[in-house]
Deep mutational scan, measured.
Amino acid sequence: DELEKRVKKIARKLNLSLDQVEEWLKRNNNDELVEAVKRLKKK
């Protein structure tokens, strides 16, 4: 979905793993995208 695409884009842009992106999003209080990261990690 759109949020998952955004997460992947962030990960690529910042050259981070999904775990690192998740931490980064949590620090930025971006719950919506944190949920998207969790969905991606399950895939």
Rank of each mutant, 00 (worst) to 15 (best):
L18I: 06
K13E: 14
V34Y: 10
R6G: 02
V34T: 06
I10M: 08
N30G: 08
K9F: 13
V37S: 03
E35Q: 09
A11P: 02
E2Q: 09
K8D: 06
I10G: 00
K9H: 13
L3K: 05
K5M: 14
N15P: 00
E22F: 12
N30K: 14
E4H: 03
E35R: 07
D31I: 14
R27G: 08
W24T: 00
K5F: 12
E22R: 06
R27Q: 13
E22D: 04
K5D: 13
Q20L: 07
L3A: 13
K43G: 05
N30Q: 15
K43W: 12
K42F: 05
N15T: 04
D19A: 11
K26L: 11
V21M: 14
K42I: 08
D31W: 15
A11G: 02
L14S: 02
A36K: 02
E22C: 15
V37L: 10
K9S: 13
N28V: 11
L40G: 01
K42Y: 06
N15E: 06
E2G: 07
N29S: 10
I10Y: 04
K43L: 10
R27S: 10
K41A: 04
K9C: 15
S17C: 12
N29R: 11
D31Y: 15
E32W: 11
L14A: 02
R6Y: 14
V7M: 05
W24K: 00
L18Y: 08
R27M: 12
R27T: 09
L3N: 09
E32L: 11
E2S: 10
N28D: 05
L14P: 00
K41L: 12
L18W: 10
L33Y: 03
D31G: 08
K41I: 10
V37C: 15
N29I: 07
E2L: 12
R39L: 05
E23Y: 09
L3G: 06
E32V: 10
N28C: 15
N30W: 15
E2K: 11
K9W: 14
K13N: 10
W24D: 00
V37K: 02
V34H: 05
D31L: 14
N28S: 11
V7S: 01
K42H: 08
E23H: 07
W24M: 08
N29F: 11
R6S: 07
I10R: 03
L16I: 07
K13Y: 13
K8M: 15
E32Q: 10
K9N: 14
S17N: 10
E22P: 01
L33N: 02
N15L: 05
E23F: 07
K41Y: 05
L25C: 14
N29T: 08
L14H: 08
K26G: 06
K8H: 11
V37T: 05
V34A: 10
A11Q: 12
D1H: 11
L40M: 09
K43H: 08
Q20D: 08
D31Q: 14
A11R: 06
A36C: 07
W24I: 07
V37R: 02
V7H: 02
L14Y: 15
D31F: 14
N15Y: 07
E32F: 08
V37D: 01
I10C: 15
V34C: 09
E4V: 08
S17H: 04
R6D: 03
S17P: 05
L16Q: 02
L40E: 00
V21H: 00
K43F: 11
N29Q: 10
K26D: 03
K9A: 15
L3H: 07
K5H: 11
A11S: 05
N15Q: 10
Q20A: 09
E2P: 10
I10E: 01
E4I: 12
K43S: 06
E23N: 08
N15F: 07
L33S: 01
E23D: 10
R39Q: 07
K41V: 04
W24G: 00
K42V: 09
L40S: 01
K26T: 10
N15S: 09
K38S: 04
N28T: 13
L18Q: 02
V34R: 08
A11E: 00
L18N: 01
E32T: 08
V34F: 08
N30S: 10
A11Y: 03
V7T: 01
V21E: 00
L16W: 13
I10W: 05
E23R: 09
L14F: 13
K41H: 03
K5R: 14
R6V: 14
L33I: 04
K13A: 13
R6Q: 14
K26A: 11
N30R: 14
L33T: 02
L40P: 00
A11N: 00
S17T: 13
V7N: 01
L18A: 03
K8P: 01
